[in-house]
């Protein structure tokens, strides 16, 4: 066999595998949309579940997820962006920097359920927040810190070094340089990281299992010390805990969750594309 025809066969196999790898995304989305779209209506999105969650809507779960995501963003973004600024703009190449980097890698690898344990031990019990929006948001925030740090750091380091030199050469201080030159040019990249965090936080179940999520609540939370329902938790509950629930309701819930996550993700993808096109340097 000639090396050309060998190449043809090999590339055909590679193409086939790649199709196999990417097919599931399409299948998953198609299945969920097809099976779940029938359940989606205004009532489903805006009312409380009824009759042991077999009927009615999923409004409190949607609301709870939005609360948790907002809380996670509030806690994780300042800390994550601050850490990225430190690593990219202030830190020298020393032991401390290496330790921080190691810690971030480690945080990114800790299993989500271990975050659940940590959040329960620290926020729920030790700090006595109870199972609450506060405890859940904090747990999600810690878990998503590496995402924000990594994305922000990448965005900061994409700002060309000479800009910093010019600013400093004009007598600006380091913080002025970061504030007026580096950050404005890194904002789109940082936002992309935040959006990715949002989408991850919205879909996570294990970290909120013991820190916030309720199986069923008759009302909306009135403070950050209340429990809430959450979409992924709700999907888990109606899939595994409640018999005789219609498949369409379950698919509908999955569709809402997936739709939310994908919507947020496509923001990030579109934003990055625009950013790449607009960049001048």
């Amino acid at each position: 066999m000639t090396s050309r025809s060998k190449e043809k066969i090999a590339f055909a196999i590679l193409t086939l595998t790649t199709i196999l790898v990417t097919m599931p995304v399409i299948l998953i989305v198609a299945t969920i949309v097809k099976q779940g779209i029938g359940a989606i209506n205004i009532e489903f999105l805006t009312t409380f579940p009824r009759n042991g969650m077999r009927e009615g809507g999923i409004y409190p779960a949607i609301f709870g997820t939005l609360c948790l995501v907002a809380g996670a963003v509030v806690f994780a973004v300042p800390l994550g962006v601050g850490a990225a600024i430190y690593l990219n703009e202030y830190a020298g190449e020393n032991l401390l920097t290496r330790l921080i980097r190691l810690a971030i890698i480690n945080l990114a690898g800790v299993p989500s359920v271990v975050y659940g344990l940590f959040g329960m031990g620290l926020f729920v019990i030790f700090l006595n927040f109870g199972a609450s929006i506060l405890a859940g948001s904090l747990t999600l925030a810690v878990m998503n810190l590496p995402v924000i740090i990594t994305a922000s750091k990448e965005a900061l380091s994409a700002v060309p070094q000479p800009f910093r030199e010019v600013s400093l050469s004009l007598g600006a201080s380091r913080w002025q340089t970061v504030r007026h030159i580096v950050l404005p040019n890194a904002v789109p990249g940082i936002l992309t990281g935040i959006i990715l965090e949002v989408s991850r936080a919205a879909g996570e179940t294990a970290p909120i299992l013991f820190t916030v999520a309720a199986f069923y609540l008759p009302g909306l939370p009135s403070s950050v010390f209340n429990q809430v329902m959450a979409l992924p938790m709700h999907l888990f509950a109606i899939s595994t805990q409640i018999p005789n629930i219609s498949l369409e309701t379950r698919y509908g819930t999955a569709l809402v969750l997936l739709g939310l996550v994908f919507l947020v993700n496509s923001f990030a993808i579109v934003m990055r594309a625009i950013l790449r096109r607009r960049r001048k340097w």
Binding site: T22, I28, F236
Partner: peptide
């Protein structure tokens, strides 16, 4: 596509 696959929540994968 790969990015979207990564974004699917694990509870949805579990459900399917």
């Amino acid at each position: 596509g790969i990015e979207l696959l990564a974004a699917i929540p694990s509870v949805v994968i579990g459900f399917l």
